[in-house]
Write a protein that binds this DNA or RNA. Structure first.
Lengths: 265, 265
DNA sequence: CGTGGCTTTGATAGAACTCAAGGCTTGTGG
DNA sequence: CCACAAGCCTTGAGTTCTATCAAAGCCACG
């Protein structure tokens, strides 16, 4: 949890503000209100679900998750946070509170002052950007509900991977039908409401069906369009545009797990 | 879809604004911006999921649902709307769009002007009320994700019934551990991602376990606290307070379905 | 009194979970 | 440089949960 150079938050701030068209003055205000970056190691809670108040955080680098753990150790991940995402847009309160968990090594910046400024109506530009984040969070939640409610395990898995790819592309962190995948299958399973074993089998099915290929910490899509169709996932145009070069992975027979494993199928 | 007396929206407006502490001026603005109440019959789409733009609606009376239907007829209900709830708080756009479906006969009022006023920053009070609605919607979505992801069919069913009871109590539409239940089991199943048959069996299980009792279009809770515990549902204090009188249903052996059926235990 | 919508029941099939063990990598210490 | 341990992925077998299919019952309504 050390302190990091303040500048390291710049990239994330840029991602956060992308599409919001902030004026220079707003950008400056935003930079001043953003707290010192802090690092958390993989597996640690940035904010436990029992925290007395809900703080706002900007994810600067690394992947985090908002999660709730039941007394019998069942765990549900409500939302995955990528660099540029913000946790704690609004105080949820009550029984709905989630904890914020570092899935990889994560750097976050305190965003409470930004939230306070937005709530106090200090800046129209920031308020617009904030509203856009809330919109995206709401849309993501609905997508998650659709997945969990009526999708099969196979569809859920493909749909989530596509969502992550699209979000990473939007953040400039993926391209060419390939993306980093630092998450363990346990984490993916907890997103999708599946057991680890079953999720593993779905990933293998995706591979056997020539829909994805994976290197240790990376996943490539062999047929984005077919995967999207089979998973009822409406592909964003940006994701398709980014996919043009159709990388060399297509030819390979290398079909492996994320972080280890051998050829299977 | 006829037009209804303008005054009929008053109650819903009051529910909508409850807790927001609007000034008289804001209340007046709100009333002026709220459109003519319109009636829709049960089963009709107030707004199809293919609508070109997403309009904002205040539910004045009746129950509605935001739902998405897949090409193979699978249907997922993302959110149930009770009187006083608002659909279309923000433009979601993209693939996440849901339709708005009348589950009973429903009266809605056009809320687009209110949304526009909020987005234009016309009133601090209205903006606060609007933000509170967004907060509630977000919390509801997270609850739904938790339910669908990690709860068993039994827990989902009980948890949803408790949520509905709490929301109805908050809106002044239920009390004494008893609430109206105009929804068919098909609708409940589509909320919970279950088949009709299985949902029916879960309801029967709740009855057999002496947790609920039901008359034709009404459900009573025989042991709110035990149900909440078994379903991992944190009960709101208001729901418990409303429950004090422990109505006479407790003694009855009448254990029936919602709209029809016979004794089954 | 027949019809349609909803609920209930039973039987069967399929999906997903659990348990248990083994394999691949990576990192660590001798 | 090798042995070992820990974490993660993979596999197989058996069980539980949930869906599907089909039919029947109940109720409201015309």
């Amino acid at each position: 949890m050390g302190s990091i150079s303040r500048r390291s938050a710049d990239v994330a701030l840029r991602i956060f503000a992308s599409g919001a068209n902030l004026t220079p003055a707003d950008q400056d205000l935003l930079a001043r209100l953003t707290g010192e970056p802090q690092a958390f190691e993989a597996g640690s809670w940035i904010e436990p679900q029992t925290a007395p108040e809900e703080r706002a955080w900007l994810v600067v680098s690394g992947w985090a998750a908002q999660a709730r753990v039941l007394s019998d150790r069942r765990r549900q991940i409500g939302r995955l946070l990528l660099p540029g995402d913000v946790a704690g847009l609004s105080h949820l309160g009550g029984g709905a509170r989630l904890g914020l968990l570092a899935l990889t090594e994560v750097v976050v910046a305190d965003f409470n002052l930004v939230r306070a400024a937005v709530e106090a109506g200090k800046s129209r530009g920031l308020a617009r950007a904030w509203a856009e984040l809330q919109r995206a969070e709401q849309a993501g939640a609905l997508q998650q509900i659709m997945r969990l409610g009526r999708f099969t395990a196979f569809e859920r898995t493909g749909d989530l991977l596509l969502e992550l790819y699209e979000r990473l592309v939007a953040a400039g962190l993926a391209h060419d039908r390939s993306m980093p995948m630092p998450l363990t299958q346990e984490v993916l399973a907890d997103c999708l409401g599946l057991s680890i074993v079953h999720l593993n089998r779905m990933v293998q099915l995706l591979r056997r069906n020539q829909l994805i290929a994976s290197e240790p910490r990376r996943i490539s899509f062999l047929d984005l369009e077919r995967l999207a169709e089979e998973c009822h996932h409406p592909l964003s145009s940006e994701a398709l545009a980014e996919a043009a070069p159709r990388s060399s992975f297509t030819g390979r027979a290398k079909v492996q797990n994320f972080a280890a494993g051998h050829i299977s199928g």
